[in-house]
Amino acid sequence: MSSVSRSILITGGTSGLGFHAATAIARRCPDSDIVIASRKDPDKAADAINTKLGQRNVQFMPLDLGNSKNVRSFVNTWAEKKLSPISVLLLNAGLQFPGEVQYTADGLESTFGINHVGHALLFHLLQPYIAEEARIVVTASGTHDPAQKSGLPDAKYDTAEKLAHPPAATLKTDGRQHYSTSKLCNVLWSYALDRRLSSTNKKWTVVAFDPGLMPGTGLARDYGLIARFLWHKVLPALIPLLRRLLSPNVHTAEESGRNMTWVALDDRNTSGKYYEARKQIPSSKDSYDEKKQEDLWEWTVNYLAQNQQEKQKFEALS
């Protein structure tokens, strides 16, 4: 059993936004177990954070959100480690595939499967290990809101089933629309979860967080050579200009990591809210559509649960 009083879990914590949030949180919480979970940790991010801070409280655990068997294995390993209850759960990892549709190991459209379904399964399975009082932060994106004119194709939510298994007529849809729609799903799911939490005695809060545009992060890893060059080498140097020309919500990954830390640790009494950096703002019109929220929630639980008993646990948040 861990000797510390709480654990903090950050998915996608080995690079970009997640890495900087993990660093800031570890600095703030030296007596907590900080777990960063990603498919791989090629740069030994946990060791780098520990060395930088002169601490030993950050560890890496492998997690593939696109593979339900791996997510279940991750939770089994979590239980075996006997870590302290989770007081902060940052569902942060996300990928974007700009080309034609790709699929996860489970046969789901990859963006939807990784950005939403994998995180939902992780949350449901981790419920027994979440502390009595806990904060859940879901990394969303302003790209989910057509009114923000992000430059990505507008999010389009019809049904969760059509997002999971795109009909033949949509297979050549711009992959960036899959991404913006998956970010809409993050907000829809957060609101659906908040509504259910409000009818329980759990002291859990859940919010959606938009970190803003962060040039230089790994989100563009699957783009073409020129686009990757611009994203990694040119745009980071133009952040001050981009703030003036495009939006004030353009940040370095380190700045957004500090903002995420603030939302997770300093503003814990809010729930069912949407944050742009540290500011509460309205999310998209579609995100407040309870029919869409319920369609997503119900499809997700029905898809994820392996049997009726598990379905009841997922539905009851127990």
Rank of each mutant, 00 (worst) to 15 (best):
I36H: 01
R28A: 15
S38D: 12
G16K: 06
T14I: 05
R39T: 10
I36Y: 01
C29T: 01
F19W: 06
G18A: 13
R39F: 12
T14N: 13
K40V: 01
R27G: 13
S38Y: 00
G18I: 15
A37D: 00
F19S: 09
D33E: 10
P42L: 09
H20K: 08
L17N: 05
A37S: 01
S32D: 08
A22G: 14
H20M: 06
C29R: 14
D31M: 13
D33C: 09
F19T: 12
D43W: 01
F19R: 13
R27D: 14
G18S: 09
R27P: 08
A21L: 03
D33T: 12
T14F: 04
D33G: 00
C29M: 11
G18Q: 12
R27A: 15
G16A: 07
A37I: 01
G16R: 02
A26H: 10
P30A: 08
P42R: 06
S15C: 08
G18K: 06
D31V: 12
A37M: 01
R28W: 11
S15T: 11
I36P: 00
D31K: 14
D31G: 09
I34H: 01
D33P: 00
G16C: 05
P30Y: 12
R28K: 15
L17V: 09
L17S: 06
I25N: 03
A24K: 12
H20A: 02
F19E: 04
C29N: 07
A22Y: 08
D41F: 00
R28Q: 15
D31R: 15
I25L: 14
G18M: 14
D43Q: 06
T23H: 07
V35C: 05
P42M: 05
A22F: 07
I34F: 03
A37E: 02
R39I: 08
I36K: 00
P30I: 08
R27N: 15
H20P: 07
A22M: 09
T14P: 10
P42D: 02
R28D: 14
H20R: 11
L17Q: 04
S15M: 11
S32L: 03
D41A: 02
K40M: 03
D41P: 04
A21D: 01
S32H: 14
P30M: 12
G13D: 03
A24C: 14
A21I: 10
S15P: 01
R39A: 08
D43F: 05
A21P: 00
T23P: 06
I36V: 07
T23Q: 14
D41S: 05
R28P: 06
F19K: 13
P42E: 02
A26N: 10
T23F: 04
A26M: 09
P30V: 08
F19H: 06
K40N: 04
G18H: 10
H20C: 10
A21G: 06
C29Y: 14
D33K: 11
S15V: 09
L17K: 09
V35W: 05
I36C: 00
L17R: 09
S15W: 04
L17Y: 07
P42Y: 00
S32I: 03
S32V: 02
F19D: 07
V35F: 11
I34P: 00
K40D: 03
R28T: 13
G16W: 03
D41I: 02
D43Y: 06
D43P: 00
P30S: 10
A26D: 10
R39G: 03
G16M: 05
V35D: 04
L17F: 10
H20I: 12
A22P: 04
F19A: 12
T23D: 12
S15Q: 10
R27L: 13
D43N: 05
A22E: 07
A26I: 12
